Simulated scan of single mutants.
Amino acid sequence: MQRSEKPGAGRIVVVGGTGLIGVRVTARLRAMGREAVAVSPATGVDAYAGAGLDDALAGAEAVIDLVNAPSWEPAAVLDFFRTASRNLAAAGRRAGLRHHLALSIVGVDRMPDNAYFLGKLAQEQGLREGGLPWTVVRSTQFMEFLTAIADGAETGGEVRAPVGQLQPIAAEDVAEAVATAALSPPAMGVIEIAGPERAPLDAMLRRRLAAAGDLRPVLSDPDARYFGGRVEALSLVPLGEARLGRLDLDAWLQRQALAKSA
């Protein structure tokens, strides 16, 4: 990943900072010498309800939006991301923030029948129209979620993977990219990040399950859906330039095996 400019002194507020990416982003920012504060509903800060936002953002320089919807029901997920994004932008304007950043998904604008993706598009719109300098970081799927993808695609003991390419990225590489973007000047646009390796979705899932000793067969099925959305060959991968993470799938799997045996 590219390095940022020399960090300033402002505090960075990581909303949704207790999740998979949030914990890593907060730790990465602190390792880069910045004051980073992780907030979530558990700490009294609820982006959807608007609760605690003004106090959390007071005196901050930037906010990183890593919130996730509690429900993936189409109307609920759209309402959640739209409302949370608008609330964050409004609180950010009151606080005089210099940067509003959100983590989104590569291909989010190419799968109109995926309700979660439509919610993330609404989140992005909240940044574009929020009146603050902004950056959207769109990421490919996290390696940490490959097993969950397989579980969601299982039918009758078989994993039926949709047709298409996947370019998964490790959570630690996502965190590095998000932290770097947060400390850089606002892009006023979209940055895409991805893993260093691209392969068919079924092949990626097969490697993940094999490494875990999971014997479920993985089949390529053109009619299979990806969290409700139809997948074309390049729906889930960058179409242009992307910043690539360091870990490929084999290296990530080796780390998982070492961590399990420790």
Rank of each mutant, 00 (worst) to 15 (best):
E124Y: 04
G126I: 01
G119R: 02
F117A: 14
Q141L: 15
M111D: 01
R128C: 02
R138C: 05
Q141H: 15
S139W: 12
T140L: 12
G131E: 05
Q123V: 00
H100R: 12
L103K: 04
H99K: 03
Q123C: 02
D109K: 05
V108S: 15
E144I: 06
P133K: 10
S104I: 05
F142E: 00
I105D: 05
A95K: 13
V137Y: 07
E144C: 08
L146Y: 07
V106Y: 12
M111K: 01
Q123E: 07
R94N: 05
L121H: 02
F117H: 08
A95P: 13
Q125K: 14
V136P: 07
L146S: 07
G96Q: 07
A122T: 00
R128Y: 10
N114T: 10
L101V: 12
G126N: 03
V136T: 14
P133T: 10
E129I: 08
T135Y: 07
M143A: 12
G119W: 01
M111S: 03
F145L: 10
L132F: 09
E144S: 12
W134R: 03
H99N: 05
T140P: 14
R110C: 03
E129T: 15
Q141W: 11
W134Q: 09
E124V: 01
V137G: 06
K120W: 01
V136M: 04
R110K: 12
G126Y: 03
F117N: 09
R128H: 08
L121G: 03
D109M: 05
L118D: 12
V136Y: 05
G130W: 01
A95Q: 13
N114G: 10
Q123F: 01
R93W: 07
F142A: 14
P112T: 09
R128N: 04
A95S: 14
G96T: 08
R128I: 04
F142Q: 05
R128P: 08
L146V: 03
E129N: 14
Q125D: 13
F117K: 00
S104T: 09
E144N: 04
G107T: 08
R98K: 09
G107F: 07
L97D: 10
A95M: 12
V137N: 00
E129M: 13
L146K: 02
A115I: 09
Q123T: 00
W134I: 08
G96Y: 10
Y116W: 13
L121A: 10
F145I: 08
E129Q: 15
G96D: 10
A95T: 11
K120F: 02
I105A: 15
L132M: 09
L118F: 06
